[in-house]
């Protein structure tokens, strides 16, 4: 499993998509930090919040796309290239193969995310000091948990798709659904139906991107007043710590369930039936081996 994970890390870190992702997050982070510092003539609490909100929002848009597409190509592209069978012919179980790929991809995506946040991290440390750095650390952590969940979903797509193209298509659609379509539908429903705050919060938990977004808001504004009645409901029902645990649990479930589903789908089905008994009650035995003479 670890051999496979190391190979995945090597392959992923060479991938331009991942390098581009880290670079873009880094640039946005630095620009956001500079803009916030410039507008406030120094790193105040408000400008710190603007920096992290900008960077986190951007990351929560981009990270799912990168993670979903990476996960989606994990197995499907091996199948297309013809390398999957030879890999399966090695002394490793299908479970180890899939978990090794997931581990390698997760570590690479996490490294890329942290590398992307690093310049902004340094900027915040230089301008806001130690307290700012500690608070800022929460945001890359939120981004990496979302990446882990999206990778699991991508892997699930990869195992269930017939080709890499189909897998990528499904991954991109899922990204679109999570970052845009779901919230649009939710807003539309809110306008037409009378959903209570409890129902609204539950629906938000069903979307891992929304769960990560609320976690980020919670880290910035512990009373969740930015979320209106839904935020008030969540605080009232669970408190800040309870809300954080609930949101983390949502992301954990979004990681564990797709991974489990991928493992189940990737299993090789056992033979459904044994050879039938002959009429005289004897089981079929091997017939004489063909031979050349």
């Amino acid at each position: 499993m670890w051999t496979l994970a190391r190979k995945e890390i090597r392959d992923a870190l060479r991938h331009r998509w991942l390098q581009g992702y880290a670079l873009v997050v880094a640039v946005v982070g630095v620009v956001a930090a500079y803009a916030a510092w410039n507008s406030s003539h120094g790193m105040s609490l408000a400008s710190f919040g603007r920096t992290t909100a900008t960077l986190t929002n951007f990351c929560l848009l981009l990270a799912p796309l990168v993670a979903l597409t990476m996960g989606a190509s994990a197995v499907a592209s091996e199948r297309d290239r013809g390398t999957l069978d030879f890999l399966l012919a090695q002394p490793l179980s299908r479970r180890d193969l899939l978990l090794g790929k997931y581990l390698g991809l997760s570590l690479s995506a996490v490294l890329a995310t942290l590398a992307g946040f690093l310049p902004a991290w340094i900027a915040v440390a230089a301008m806001a000091g130690g307290g700012g750095i500690l608070r800022f650390t929460v945001f890359p952590a939120i981004a990496t948990t979302l990446v882990a969940a999206m990778l699991a979903l991508g892997l699930c797509i990869s195992v269930s798709s017939r080709s890499a193209v189909q897998a990528q298509g499904r991954a991109i659609f899922l990204w679109f659904a999570f970052v845009l379509l779901y919230d649009l539908l939710l807003m539309g429903t809110l306008l037409t139906a009378d959903l209570g705050p409890g129902v609204l919060v539950s629906l938000l938990l069903l979307n891992p991107v929304d769960a990560a977004r609320i976690l980020a808001v919670l880290a910035l504004e512990p009373d969740l007043h930015l979320l209106g009645p839904a935020g008030a409901f969540l605080m009232g029902a669970a408190g800040a710590r309870g809300a954080a645990l609930l949101l983390c649990a949502s992301l954990l479930v979004w990681t564990a369930l797709p991974l489990l589903a991928a493992l189940v789908m990737f299993r090789i089905p056992r033979p459904r039936s044994l050879p039938a008994e002959r009429e005289n009650g004897e089981t079929a035995t091997a017939s004489p081996i063909p031979s050349t003479e």
């Binding site: 290239r81 390398t83 030879f86 012919a89 090695q90 002394p91 490793l92 179980s93």
Partner: peptide
């Protein structure tokens, strides 16, 4: 499967390599 494949060396007809 693991034990069986530990005992087997397999050469595919084509492809299989990265």
């Amino acid at each position: 499967g693991r034990e069986v494949r530990r005992r087997i060396g397999y050469m595919p007809q084509s492809g299989g390599l990265y």
